[in-house]
Design a binder for these strands. Sequence first.
DNA 1: CTATGTGCAAATCCTTTGCATCAAC
DNA 2: GTTGATGCAAAGGATTTGCACATAG
Lengths: 132, 132
Amino acid sequence: MANLKYSRQRASIKEYLAGTVEHPTADTVYMHVKEEFPNISLGTVYRNLNLLADIGDAVKITTPDGGDRFDGRTEPHYHVVCCSCGKVEDLEMSSEEIASINNAADSIFDGKVTSHTTLFYGTCKDCLEKEK
Amino acid sequence: MANLKYSRQRASIKEYLAGTVEHPTADTVYMHVKEEFPNISLGTVYRNLNLLADIGDAVKITTPDGGDRFDGRTEPHYHVVCCSCGKVEDLEMSSEEIASINNAADSIFDGKVTSHTTLFYGTCKDCLEKEK
DNA sequence: CTATGTGCAAATCCTTTGCATCAAC
DNA sequence: GTTGATGCAAAGGATTTGCACATAG
């Protein structure tokens, strides 16, 4: 288990994640944090995003297309990817419901199920309106 | 919409997918199909796997680590990734239950939800026994 | 004959890593 | 002063793509 040492860069990344409802890619995080730390490198952003995800201060969302996305909200929750614009939004499903899906899976599976990730696909409100 | 033309290579890929319960990576598919077509290229395997996924004759399983995996079973179903050995197994959850999760999400989301993918994490039977 | 598929290799995208230097403790 | 963090650039792995040739229809 590694000993953590404070770093301004990591603090800034964490703060940015906490203050956005977007679900930015590593590159997007990089561009934003760069405003405060012009010399920060993409490698540092990746290292910190992975570190934050490892210690539970962020969530990595694996998506089929393009790069992974990161989320500062750490309680279990779901996401919807808009198939038209690619935006990722939170889906407010109750934690009870999420837990019950885990339990259902565990009771069916011949082994142990401890967690799951779900990614919904659809169309966001904005894109639905544009289609009209 | 492109016109499909028969190809022995594609048929072989499809046949291999249909006959295995593994959830092979593109590379694994490549190595197997290579036994029948020693000159087949990885590019062709990728092109066909994506094509099969597009027309609904295969499913691409996006995983957080390593490459994506492919599945010849096309009815909606879930998967469990073993955190110890990395194996991917089917989870026999009923299609009603899967559909109800979709509906639940659609009723909550401010937009339209049409489908979802879920990946469960846990430990498979074999690895559970080894731990003892 | 024409359109699609193939094999090959190069290119691309995203992410990780090695290393010298810098900052935290 | 020791250890972890950074910046840079190079390496890495998975996947896609451009192109000339082969093959299905």
